[in-house]
Design a protein around this nucleic acid. Structure first.
Length: 491
RNA sequence: GCCCCCAUCGUCUAGCCAGGUUAGGACAUCGCCCUUUCAAGGCGACGGCAGCGGUUCAAAUCCGCUUGGGGGCGCCA
């Protein structure tokens, strides 16, 4: 049945960032293509001149590459069915529009937006539902000329036939629309640009797309497109409408829900393989119990549109965080180090010239210490800025419950001397010294450990103290303990 | 308002198509263990078939209605 080479496409319009919903649609297309040894095509739908930007094209390409969703045909790589920017295919849309006009499937309409708006409002005021009233369906050549001489520029409308239109959705089965619902929609705007439904059909047909996999917000566009395929004499591809991703409040994911863009997550230090894994598992499951972690290869191997759910999914940051932390723990420390350094630079914590080999080494140690307790790399800056500044605050809670305990100044003073006299400053040596000292005084080691942690980090929680001291280094540790002693004296 | 789609724990989902399970897993939450804190890990708890009617010996599963949610109704895509 699937002897024909599978050809699928992701067709974003470059009007902003790549959102998680779009990324997921791209992912499903990509996985489907890879699974079936097919071709994954990227097409840029930039027919809306006012909203499309080149910058946005760049961000989308960058986001897809970051996710590892490389396309086989499209921008930068070309291909036999290009160009892959709709703005460069205008002649094709005009050609096929002309064809529809000459075969009677399309007609010029000179109604202005203002006129349409007035008639629409009047109709609705009467309690009837509006669809284009076909005022221009039977215009004579004289009438058309008169309109043109008035300076009007026509749009081209598709003449929707009587009856119903049915298509098969791969997830839902047959879906039927009454053509009454589909008024004579515009296929060419007055500026000569094609509308979405028209350009989409011409391109999908010309690019030999076999499966149209897109968000289910397009279901209601599909009957119009099916009508166009028929009128144009093109074979219909198969359609699969995948569910949308919603925010916590169950409305379409948007800026209101924080940042739904792929680049935001990249910049926060999420790993692309975690993002792909999470996105894949939204609306899709393999039925394997207890298995949540899937490599790209495992996703491809298992991917099937039949297992995609039909209902919208709520984006759950908690689960993404968990999944990312799983990948973080398994990732190459040097790679995480680079992500950390990037974040530090972007936040102005360090400058390029401060990025010495020694500093990189230090960052690697920080990552090794922190990666088991963070969910995304930028969290280090949020929860453990003390690694990179001497101006950390003491958590008031920590001051109250730890530093103000009896005997803390003495403990810190003793620790200071003890640490200062250590030859080696590795975790094992430090630990032995502290435990011995505590033992000598008949105290639990915890009575040293907790005040010291607050002293050097300002916090009650954090990595194991001895490792922390080692990474911070003797000089920094002594200065911080001394500073804490001063701080306590002043209180 | 009209049209289309959808409906299992708080969330993501398995099970449904080919009716018979203590309705399973994951995240989150809570508890215990481990432990210098946190995290991780181990063990456990909490928690669901939207409702109502059918069909049937038997319904999460099939059918209908209701309710709820989402989407669309542009010279946006």
């Amino acid at each position: 049945m699937m002897s024909e080479t599978v050809r699928v496409r992701f067709a974003p319009s470059p009007t902003g960032m790549l959102h998680l919903g779009g990324a997921r649609t791209a992912l499903f297309n990509w996985a489907f293509a890879r699974k079936h040894g097919g071709v994954f095509i990227l097409r840029i739908e930039d027919t809306d001149l006012t909203r499309s930007t080149e910058e946005s094209v760049g961000v989308i390409l960058e986001s897809l590459k970051w996710l590892g969703l490389f396309w086989d045909e499209g921008p930068e790589v070309g291909g036999p069915y290009g160009p892959y920017f709709q703005s460069q295919r205008l002649h094709l849309y005009r050609e096929y529009a002309e064809k529809l006009k000459s075969t009677g499937f399309a007609y010029e309409c000179y109604c202005t937006p203002e006129e349409l708006k007035m008639r629409k409002e009047a109709t609705i005021a009467q309690g009837r539902s509006w669809r284009y009233d076909r005022k221009c369906l039977h215009l004579s050549e004289r009438e058309r000329r008169a309109f043109r001489e008035e300076g009007r520029k026509p749009v081209l409308r598709f003449r929707v036939p009587e009856g119903v239109t049915t298509f098969v959705d791969m997830l839902r089965g047959e879906v039927t629309f009454d053509n009454e619902e589909l008024d004579d929609f515009v296929i060419l705007k007055s500026d000569g640009m094609p509308t979405y439904n028209f350009a989409c059909v011409v391109d999908d047909a010309l690019m030999r797309i076999t499966h149209v996999i897109r968000g289910d917000d397009h279901i209601s566009n599909t009957p119009r497109q099916v009508l166009l395929y028929k009128a144009l004499g093109f074979p219909c591809p198969q359609f699969a409408h995948v569910p949308m991703i919603l925010g916590k409040d169950k409305t379409r994911l948007s800026k209101r829900h924080g940042s739904p863009s792929v680049t935001y997550y990249r910049d926060m230090g999420y790993l692309p393989e975690a993002m792909v894994n999470y996105l894949a598992r939204l609306s899709w499951a393999t039925g394997e119990e207890e298995k949540e972690i899937f490599t790209r290869e495992e996703i491809i191997e298992r991917f099937s549109l039949e297992q995609v759910t039909k209902h919208a999914a709520v984006f759950d940051l908690d689960k993404l965080n968990w999944m990312n932390s799983v990948y973080l723990r398994a990732a190459d420390p040097l790679r995480l180090r680079d992500i950390l350094v990037d974040i530090l630079k972007r936040h102005g914590v360090i400058r390029d010239e401060e990025c010495t080999a020694e500093f990189l080494e230090y960052c690697t140690k920080v990552i090794l210490l922190m990666r088991e307790r963070i969910r995304y790399v930028a969290q280090i800056l949020e929860d453990a800025a003390y690694f990179f500044t001497e101006h950390y605050e003491y958590d008031p809670q920590a001051v109250e419950t730890v530093l103000c305990e009896d005997g803390v100044p003495e403990v810190l003073q003793v620790s200071f001397e003890l640490l200062r006299n250590l030859e080696a400053f590795d975790a094992a040596t430090i630990e032995m010294a502290i435990r011995e000292e505590a033992g000598r005084r008949g105290m639990k080691a915890a009575r040293f450990i907790h005040p010291l942690r607050v002293a050097v980090s300002g916090k009650k929680v954090g990595p194991g103290l001895f490792e922390l001291l080692e990474v911070l280094g003797k000089e920094r540790v002594l200065a911080r303990v001394a500073r804490t002693l001063e701080f306590l004296k002043e209180r």
